[in-house]
Design a protein around this nucleic acid. Sequence first.
DNA 1: CTGTATCCTCTCTGATACTG
DNA 2: CAGTATCAGAGAGGATACAG
Lengths: 135, 135
Amino acid sequence: MNGSRAEAAHHQLVADVFARACASRGVLEHVTGRWGTLALAALAEGPFRFNALRRKVDGVSEKMLAQTLQALERDGFVHREAEPTIPPRVEYSLTALGAEVAGRLRELIELVEGRVQEVEAARRAYDEAKSAVAR
Amino acid sequence: MNGSRAEAAHHQLVADVFARACASRGVLEHVTGRWGTLALAALAEGPFRFNALRRKVDGVSEKMLAQTLQALERDGFVHREAEPTIPPRVEYSLTALGAEVAGRLRELIELVEGRVQEVEAARRAYDEAKSAVAR
DNA sequence: CTGTATCCTCTCTGATACTG
DNA sequence: CAGTATCAGAGAGGATACAG
C-alpha cells in the first residue's frame, strides 16, 4: 500500500474487510488475540524456549501457549526449531513476516499504552455520567 | 509517558506489557476484538447510525454491536450523539483518540490483508508437513 | 523439557422477545 | 429506531495427569 493509491486503498480496505473478511479475520484474530499479542511481543525481543516464553508471558497456561504458538507457526509468523535430543530443546522465533506483524502490533500497543490515562479518564467520566442518570 | 521516549518506550513497553498488562490489555482487547476492529474500521469511513452500522458490519448481532459500541464509547474511542426525538436518532463517530487507534489498526489490517496469500501458503505447507509425519 | 489428553468452568455469542 | 432482557449453545481457557 503506497503513494497515490492511498484513497483507493482505503475504500478497498473497507470492501475487503467486509467482503473477504473470512480470510483475514481468522488470521487477525490469531495475531490480536489475548495470547497471540503477548507471544508476538515477547518473541519480538528475541528467540525463546517454551518454558522461558511461558515465564515471560505471565499468566498463560501450558495449553494456551502451545495452542497459540501452533496457530502462529501454522500462519507463518513463528518459526519452531526443535532439536531431537533428550530432553528436547525447542526454540521459537519470529519469521520475517512475523517480525513485520509484531512491529505493527507494537505500534498499536505503544499508542494504547501511551493513552491509557486518557482512556481511564474517559471511563471515569462515562461511569460518572451513567450513575448521575441513575440518580 | 511523554516527550522523547523512543528508546525508553520500547524497553518500558516490554516491562509494561507484562507488568501493567492489566491496564492496557483490557483496552487492547476492546480494540482488537472481533467486533471492535470492524466497528472502528467502519467508523473510520465516517459517522453512522446504529442500524446503518449494523448493516455495514455484516454478521454482527444487535446485542454484540450495542455491547461493542458501549465498550468503545466508555474507553473514549467512540462518540455517541443521541437526539432525544421519537423515533430516536443516534449517531456514532470516532473521537480524535479513536481515529488514531483506527489508523494504527488499519495499518495492521492492511499488512495482514496484503499477506493473506503468504499465510495461506504457510498453512498449506504446515498441514502438508503434518500429514506427512502422520504417514 | 516439551508437549498432548481430559475434564470442567465460565465467558462470549446469537436468537428471540420485549421496552421506550 | 435504538436498544435491553433472557436463555441456551459453542468455544475459550485453566487444572491436572500423563506421554515421548
